[in-house]
Design a protein around this nucleic acid. Sequence first.
DNA 1: AACTTATTGCAATTTTTTTTCAGTAGAGTA
DNA 2: TACTCTACTGAAAAAAAATTGCAATAAGTT
Lengths: 150, 150
Amino acid sequence: MEKLQTSELDIFRNFIKKKGLRYTPEREIILREIFNIHDHFDVDELYLRLRNKGHRISKASIYRTIPLLIECGLVQEVYHEDGHMHYEHIYGHEPHAHFRCLSCRRVEEFRDERLEEVSREYAEKYGIEVKMSRFEILGYCANCKGKEEG
Amino acid sequence: MEKLQTSELDIFRNFIKKKGLRYTPEREIILREIFNIHDHFDVDELYLRLRNKGHRISKASIYRTIPLLIECGLVQEVYHEDGHMHYEHIYGHEPHAHFRCLSCRRVEEFRDERLEEVSREYAEKYGIEVKMSRFEILGYCANCKGKEEG
DNA sequence: AACTTATTGCAATTTTTTTTCAGTAGAGTA
DNA sequence: TACTCTACTGAAAAAAAATTGCAATAAGTT
């Protein structure tokens, strides 16, 4: 018996259907592109990437699609910086936390099971249904540490 | 020998001096008001509260002051919601995490030492200087859980 | 008191996100 | 396949959030 593979496209399509919405080419293209970006992204970057590939998808559509992708758990907000939100796709990735250097702005990911423990236990204790959790460390990386932040 | 008490005002004044900036009435009023708010706040709310107390401090000044308060560790960004940032004062408070209900928008604080452990260990391992860390759980509270998010 | 220069409020600007609207096109039904 | 209903789209306008320019003011030092 073969293992059925559920792709992010399937998940999104099912979600869209279940909500009585329409699975459009634009939405699929946006999703595909997001899963091509193996890094954090913002709306502008996504828009430009689509544009460079010849897609004429408006920013409005991007702004309208992202909340759907977040709702079905394929994408999450990572941090707010420079006045706008940064995202990442998460399907197929282990949960992870972020360290962000306030000086060079580098972002590192790391994993620690205790974080999931904390949220699992909190959820159990208070009867919460966890949609997602996020842990972020802000500071100065080894390189920038001495240099008085800049 | 008496224990010297350092207030948030002292901290801010020292920080301002050390940076060669000026300790102005506006900055002090903003700081005092922030420490009167025992909850999360956003720029607009702070502005309105000051206004209601007869202070004519501009939003520009608030926007210019908050980064200073963050830099000296008196204030932190808590979460970004409804298109803008929400803050809280932190001096004199134990570090804590947040749970945010995606339906009723209630925010609860909780404490878990493992979170500090995680960031302390990460910092040690990679030679990072931690400025702050933040843990947030998003989901549906016990009340909202059944009701299909709204 | 004089001086230097950071800070202020206001208004204008910039940036990000949301909304409006008219035309288009999914997707179900006849 | 044609028909119908209504969600979706891009473009532009609007709204909201945050930043900046500027002239007047005032902090803090000499």
